[in-house]
């Protein structure tokens, strides 16, 4: 499997990468870890004339935690996320999710920015970022702008990012309370049949706040306010978990593929959400 020919660029900073994108228009694509793009190029499902390699853009790497403000450079790899002690303390849900992405080799290369920017419904980070209320920074010819993860996804592989913009960083407030990222997959390295990201806070034995997002159950991630609302104020008992699952099932829209028919996916969605809520509650 040999991809079509392309010209290779390796800019030394993000601003130069943006000007390359501008000058080559829709013939250009940026490459981070490349573990989504290169397989597509090998299958000739992606044709790229100009490949802009971001690996030297040091300004897009690294994790910083300042109080409860967390910033992650887009070129930070899943391996870096897993290894980061400060991130595991500030946002353990990211650690838990990153461990469930792909396999060790892919995690050394795959980046969090690529995962959120690609718009692949199978990626885990988009739903997670909606759950925690992250904000993405994109850099374009007119400078930076910020887009909430909850407003970023428009359709499969279509996002609010313009073609001449690069997603450079992710910001969020360190989540409080209990958390869980629960994923069902056929095998290591597969995308989710269904996955759920859950955050819960507890006050006096009841759920004070909740946020729930689902992965690979629609052509975009599903942040289900109704599911979260079904938990708030209750004691997170079996009935309220059932109500949350029922509300979530109203919001998802899975389609049949080689991971199973629609009914099976809805069944799995209910199970992963139940497990995620129970685990998050036990940690709240």
């Amino acid at each position: 499997m040999i991809p079509g020919a392309f010209e290779y660029h390796r800019p030394s900073d993000t601003a130069s990468a943006v000007s390359l994108l501008q000058s080559h228009g829709d013939e250009a694509r940026v490459i981070a870890g490349g573990h989504s793009l290169i397989p597509m190029m090998k299958l000739r499902m992606a044709a790229v004339e100009h490949l802009i390699d971001l690996q030297d853009c040091q300004d897009m790497k690294g994790i910083s935690v300042d109080g409860d403000a967390v910033t992650i450079g887009a070129m930070t790899t899943q391996h870096d996320l897993i290894e980061s002690k400060i991130l595991a303390d500030a946002a353990p849900i990211l650690h838990e999710a990153a461990l469930q992405i792909a396999d060790p080799q892919v995690r050394y290369m795959g980046t969090v920015g690529g995962n959120v920017a690609n718009g692949d419904p199978g990626n885990d980070m988009p739903g997670l970022m909606q759950c925690i209320g992250a904000v993405f920074t994109v850099l374009g010819p007119n400078g930076d702008r910020e887009i909430a993860a909850r407003d970023f996804y428009e359709a499969a592989y279509t996002t609010a990012r313009e073609d001449d913009e690069i997603l450079t960083q992710i910001r969020f407030t360190a989540p409080k309370g209990g958390y869980a990222y629960e994923k069902q997959k056929r095998k290591i390295g597969d995308y989710a049949t269904a996955a759920a990201a859950v955050l819960l806070t507890k006050e006096g034995g009841t759920v004070a706040s909740a946020s729930i997002a689902m992965t690979n159950l629609s052509d975009i991630p599903v942040w289900s306010e109704a599911a979260a609302q079904a938990l708030v104020g209750g004691a997170c008992d079996a009935d309220s978990v059932k109500a949350a699952v029922a509300a979530m099932l109203e919001d998802i829209d899975p389609s049949e593929d080689n991971r199973g028919p629609v009914e099976f996916k809805r069944h799995v969605a209910g199970i992963v959400l139940t497990r995620a809520i129970e685990r998050a509650w036990s940690r709240a």
């Binding site: 499997m1 490349g34 573990h35 090998k42 490949l51 690996q55 892919v106």
Partner: peptide, 25 residues
């Protein structure tokens, strides 16, 4: 197709599947 790992090499301290990396990278 980036699944089996038979092509794994070590690059600057990372295990990498050499079928999913351009040499120029």
């Amino acid at each position: 197709t980036s699944h089996c790992g038979a092509c794994t090499v070590d690059i600057d301290g990372k295990s990498v599947k050499a079928c999913t990396l351009f040499a120029i990278q």
